[in-house]
Simulated assay, not measured.
Amino acid sequence: MTHHLAPAPLLALTLPSEDVLYAALLARDPAFDGRAYVGVTSTGIFCRLTCPARKPLRANCRFFSSPADCLAAGFRACLRCHPLAPEAAADPCIAALTSALEADPARRWREADVAGLGFDPSTVRRSFRRQFGMTFLEMARQRRLREGMATLAAGGRVIEAQFDAGFDSPAAFRAAFARLLGAAPAEMKGALLQADWIDTPIGPMIAVADKRSLHLLEFADRKALPAELARLRKMAGGIGLGRPQPIDQMADELGAFFAGTSARFDTPLALHGSAFTRAVWEILRQIPPGTTRSYGDIARDMGCPEAARAVARANGANQIALVIPCHRVIGADGALTGYGGGLWRKQRLIELERGYALRHDRQPDDIGQRADGGEAGQP
């Protein structure tokens, strides 16, 4: 079954009414972050709708769909909400703690360590949950666990992996490993499917493949990951640790994608879903980078205009992130809506892909995907 999408303008959907946007500004609604910005005529500054500064009068607001439009209209970027940077990067505690974690991934972080850096632990918990869906301490434990998984994938013993992951207790290591991957280390041997990590600028991903095809690609912190791995393990009789060729190929393609040189993914995929679900995924792969669609748009393209909810379920069932670009589906009103990898990642991906869309006419071969204090703005 082949579907053809009508051409869509860059980040296609029109902004909602100014009534909706001003209400979102007053509520600091994160659903529009990365999708709408406000220029404040009384200050000449533009902001995110989530900016913490005192809100401007309605008469002083102009709304835009991108930072580029704000700059073109003569506004300059706010020094409080940093609209030219991803939202997570604008939070000083997030920037400092994630940098510290990458500098020493084996460190066993505690709340006292966070406080020792001058941050309030409760504020840090709220910030990380809002941006990443997990606390900083949970993120640090996951990062340590990854070190242990790398040791096992290279053929190391479980006890070596335990120490590399910074766990004093073998039982604690086995339990943490099982929570992430759905099985204890000793159970992940000699299987047809193999799993490994792939690093990306927006967080580590877990990839699962056999010798021919990629079966899963998910962010390691996605809540649905253990259930998805359990389904694959049941289907294949187990999942081992290793790096077959499709994972290597995907790692290279993701590197090019995040470097801004290519949005093309040619790694063979093994898709597990109903005929309807696979048809939705096929349409998702036809959405060009830098454009977005709504669930209703996709349902109409399939000839089933009443099936928007079914399309949303199929979108949520996608277990090959980025390659099947469910992040390009947004709400009918232009809001980002849900994303299993977190709305902050969805924002980052949409912003990244704007660059591909702007270069589309010059580099068409790299763009395609194969179908298999004062008023707001005052510093």
Rank of each mutant, 00 (worst) to 15 (best):
H4R: 13
L5C: 08
A8M: 14
P9R: 14
L10S: 12
L11S: 12
A12S: 15
T14V: 05
T14Q: 07
D19Q: 15
D19W: 08
A23C: 05
L25Y: 04
L25H: 05
L26W: 00
R28P: 00
D29H: 09
P30R: 10
P30N: 08
G34F: 01
R35S: 12
A36I: 10
Y37I: 06
T41P: 00
T41W: 02
R48Y: 02
L49S: 00
L49A: 02
P52Y: 10
R54P: 00
P56Y: 09
P56V: 13
L57C: 01
R58F: 12
A59W: 01
R62G: 03
P67N: 07
C81G: 06
C81Y: 05
C81D: 11
C81Q: 05
L84G: 03
A85P: 00
E87M: 13
A90P: 00
D91Y: 04
C93Y: 00
T98M: 13
S99V: 13
S99E: 15
A106H: 09
A106F: 00
A106R: 13
E111K: 07
G116Y: 10
F128R: 00
R129M: 13
F136L: 04
E138T: 10
M139I: 01
A140E: 04
A140S: 13
R141W: 00
R143I: 01
R146K: 04
R146N: 00
E147Q: 15
G148S: 03
A150N: 12
L152A: 05
G156R: 06
R157S: 11
D164H: 06
S169G: 07
A184M: 10
A184G: 12
G190N: 14
A195R: 03
D196R: 01
P201L: 12
A207Y: 03
V208K: 06
V208W: 08
D210H: 07
H215D: 10
L217S: 05
E218T: 01
E218A: 11
A220R: 01
L225E: 06
L225Q: 01
A227V: 14
I239V: 15
I239E: 06
G240F: 02
L241S: 05
P244N: 09
P246A: 02
Q249K: 07
Q249C: 05
A251P: 01
F258S: 04
A259H: 01
A259M: 00
D266Y: 01
D266H: 06
D266L: 13
T267R: 07
P268K: 03
F276K: 07
T277G: 10
T277D: 14
V280L: 08
V280D: 03
E282A: 14
R285V: 11
I287V: 15
I287T: 12
G290N: 08
G290Y: 08
D297A: 11
D297G: 07
R300E: 14
P305H: 08
A307E: 13
A307W: 12
L322H: 04
V329S: 04
I330R: 01
G331S: 10
G331N: 09
A335H: 13
G340M: 05
W344D: 09
K346E: 10
Q347N: 08
E351I: 04
E353D: 12
R354S: 14
Y356A: 07
A357M: 09
L358P: 00
D361Y: 00
R362S: 12
R362V: 14
D372I: 06
G373D: 12
G373T: 07
G377T: 11
